[in-house]
Amino acid sequence: MNAHQNNNLIEIKNLKMYFPITKGLLRRKVGDVKAVDDISFDIKQNETLGLVGESGCGKTTTGRCILRLYQPTSGSIVFNGTDISSIPEKQVRPLRRHMGAIFQDPYGSLNPRQSARTIAGMPLIVHHMIDKKDLDDKVAELFNLVGLDSSMMDRVPHEFSGGQRQRLGIARALACNPSLIVCDEPISALDVSIQAQIINLLEKLQKSLGLTYLFIAHDLSVVQHISDRVAVMYLGRIVEIANSKELYQSPLHPYTKALLSAVPVPNPVRERERVRIVLKGEVPSPAHPPTGCHFHPRCSIASAECEEFIPPLNTISGTHQVSCLKV
């Protein structure tokens, strides 16, 4: 894969997404949930960027900002040379065909009242990219691509199994021939055996169609397998971003270390030797994040300066960036 080519498909700079907390009858604003708090990264053409972090750290929000399902509070999202972060919805719409989305829940993300044909073909219909008479052929082609039988076109979603539904969701994401696909935990709701099939399918499609993925997940071993680079998020901020191999072999940020130490090893001897770093305390609320480094209250190496200064994302070597004052 040509991950080191220097053409970025998407560049995110200082992206912030705050959700206002309102109170009372007049909907007075009393605060913000800082779901995404000043993050920057880019994804190269044909690359897979894994985005990991625990629940509520803002990974899904980041994905949805990129899809412009949310209007970001500030920052820029440059997709294919266009900043899509603040242009009106009307102008975003034609750009949407270049982006696909795969959702976590294969049950909730397909309209139960549409046939598989309509679901997979809808993006084409929406963008007027197809004649009615060609729809069947095109949908059959898409079904073929994702490993579904084209005789299933008339079925409704609940007549499919979980894995098949997710394939249908992938077919829909591919319909308009997008360049970027945001995969929002595409395998978390599936059986382990099905997970492998879907991962392999996604990899195969990436190779044959030259796709770029933003792969959001919390399963670290799956992310390692599929990603070229991995970004680790904690409480709305990226704490570390590096090549997949480098990140897993030599994590630098104490949070990444703790996260990786939680991955079970499929070897009983080595599994017994695994040293788990157990973090103290709970994830603070993104409505009232700690000052300075968001991670300092739970960090084992934090000092006074960590409470004061927000650590910048420093480049350590090559593509390895980490946001920690102690590294």
């Binding site: 399902l69 963008h127 308009c176």
Partner: peptide, 16 residues
């Protein structure tokens, strides 16, 4: 539902 999100992400208009 997520399928509304999916529809929005594909650029569907309000009427449709």
């Amino acid at each position: 539902n997520d399928y509304i999100l999916a529809a929005r992400s594909m650029g569907m208009g309000d009427m449709r």
